[in-house]
Design a protein around this nucleic acid. Structure first.
Lengths: 256, 256
DNA sequence: CGCCCCCTTGACTCGCCTCAAGTATCGTGG
DNA sequence: CCACGATACTTGAGGCGAGTCAAGGGGGCG
């Protein structure tokens, strides 16, 4: 916030200096236990800091990158939320994920040097730009960094596999329950409540992600409210009966 | 084939020797332009050869690995076809992919050191065992190997994203057309016909993968046959009108 | 030949989509 | 402060695509 005020109010005499002022510092970042530098010692963390580019502010609804663009950077989310989505030839959009602080964006672009999806900020957000070429140079010198990078890519693969399970096998109620439980557990990992949170995305975006319509999401919210599983107030969600919601997500309890 | 005859007919006086006889050689393998050693020079390829473990034969319907097992090896498919699938708490199975020669299995296990899905051979197959620890040691010495490994992981991510698009957005006919087109293009990359091939998986497995029932797949095959898009003979498929099938897969042409 | 498994086809059902109308919320400007 | 419009969401009625259930066909193997 302070940075953005400086940026907007002060003319920039020296771009280098300004870039320096915006430099991210992994060790000072509250996400370093979840993000790329996880498990690095101070020494290695500062070597990672040294290659990390600008800290960029992405206003709500702005693109971080677009499908088809040339790939040069990965992005670590410092603050805020994003959605990633693909668009096919016929113009259909499919949201492939919602990402939050501590998560890495752009890994799907490594294979072809082009982004395969677009990323848009769901609220005013901040990312650290990680030049992939320079990151690759570091891999040879910091084995722990490489190992953790592999874990993060692998976890992206398993995350997508569970979405495939969700889209391929589950009924609407089960999908939505799984979605809420997943959000809750990710907030818990960041020190927030797992049962009380604000949805950063619209009903329509949730529906698109889950392979359902906006109307179905709305009806499910009403149903879960009536079943006393949830309290709902616009985008504020309180999970009242987490065990039962988890049972529905797991498929061990029917929801009708 | 020759190896298996030797294995079955000759008693094994020296296991070491036998392992040696079974050693895979990347440079001699017809898949090395698609597989992990892609783009390596002879020198680096032999260093990769040196760490690769046994070449294992996996008979039809046998497990290569099981969900939950400890992860030690990646597997490169030399020959044959596999399916990978997850099973959730309620016992639902979701096939997450069909893999063929030149493709890498097990990357989803890196993140947690446990396999998140099971892999079963769809026909008698052969794989190269790649001890992941030793592969990691090589990464520091062969940057090209590391780069290509990242490309392969990234491509696995984009592959799964397109399945998400398929499951989330497409109608049954479009899904099945996309499935056939995808199979064709992968056979083409291996030097086989893109329009005439044998399905290694049952109707039921195709349906499970595409989020449809066996009956739906059967009806779609009949419909595509009637539309003169396909010739179908049990599991033999001939694509008669590839452009139209691709248009249906892309969603630019309706199929009714 | 006969059994088993895989597949096909038909009739019916149901979950979710589509279409449509109405309500709530928020930002903007008077 | 309220008026206004735009956007986001809710709710209902009806239809359709794909699932379910059931019966039958066909190929391969012992």
């Amino acid at each position: 916030m302070i940075h953005s005020i400086q940026l907007n109010s002060v003319p920039q005499p020296d771009p280098e200096l300004n870039v320096h002022a915006l430099k991210a510092s992994c060790s000072a970042c509250s996400m370093h236990q979840l993000c790329l530098p996880m498990g690095l010692d101070d020494d290695d963390m500062s070597r990672l800091d040294a290659i990390i580019g600008r800290r960029r502010k992405i206003p709500r609804d702005a693109h971080l990158y677009r499908m088809g663009e040339h790939f040069t950077n990965l992005y670590a989310i410092r603050l805020g939320h994003f959605k990633t989505f693909q668009i096919n030839v016929a113009g259909d959009q499919q949201i492939t994920g919602f990402q939050m602080a501590g998560e890495l964006l752009g890994m799907d672009a490594i294979g072809t040097d082009r982004h395969h999806c677009s990323a848009i900020a769901l609220e005013d957000s901040e990312v650290c730009e990680i030049p992939f070429n320079r990151l690759q140079d570091l891999f040879g010198h910091i084995p722990n960094l490489l190992h953790h990078f592999h874990r993060m890519m692998s976890q992206e693969i398993t995350r997508e596999q569970s979405v495939m399970l969700l889209l391929g096998n589950m009924r609407a109620g089960q999908r939505f329950a799984a979605f809420l439980v997943n959000l809750g557990s990710r907030y818990a990992a960041r020190g927030y409540s797992s049962t009380s949170f604000h949805l950063r995305m619209s009903r329509e975006e949730i529906g698109n992600y889950l392979g359902l319509t906006i109307e179905s999401i709305s009806r499910l919210l009403s149903r879960f409210k009536k079943m006393e599983l949830l309290q709902v107030n616009n985008r504020e969600i309180v999970i009242l009966d987490a065990p039962r919601l988890k049972a529905i997500a797991a498929g061990t309890e029917k929801c009708d």
